[in-house]
């Protein structure tokens, strides 16, 4: 299902069927997923949902980007800072 995209802060991000949001963001060159508790930033780290570093908002719900499958049309945003 190539050609499918979701939105990261309004920008279209392509993904492959079954790919996680984290993987698709990484492939699109997004190293930082937004602000975290200083001096750290939200970003991909452990890949198994343990570290809570890659939190994003997916259609309003806070999710680990590494566990959440991308789907066409999702609105994905930074988690809104300082989650802890």
């Amino acid at each position: 299902m190539s050609g499918a995209t979701f939105f990261w802060m309004g920008r279209s991000i392509p993904f492959q069927e079954g790919e996680s949001i984290a993987s698709a963001l990484d492939a699109a060159g997004m190293v930082s997923f937004g602000p975290g508790v200083p001096p750290s930033q939200m970003r991909f780290f452990c890949g198994i949902g343990a570290c809570q570093c890659c939190l994003v908002r997916v259609d309003g719900a806070t999710r680990e980007a590494c566990l959440t499958a991308a789907a066409a049309g999702l609105e994905v945003e930074p988690a809104g800072g300082a989650h802890g």
């Binding site: 492959q16 790919e19 930033q41 780290f45 452990c46 590494c66």
Partner: peptide, 22 residues
């Protein structure tokens, strides 16, 4: 803790998922 630093297992997760090396 910097963005762009991952665990090796995390890197492997992405690699297995995507079938491409970082």
């Amino acid at each position: 803790h910097l963005a762009g630093v991952t665990t090796a297992g995390g890197l492997q997760v992405m690699m297995k998922e995507r079938g491409r090396a970082p």
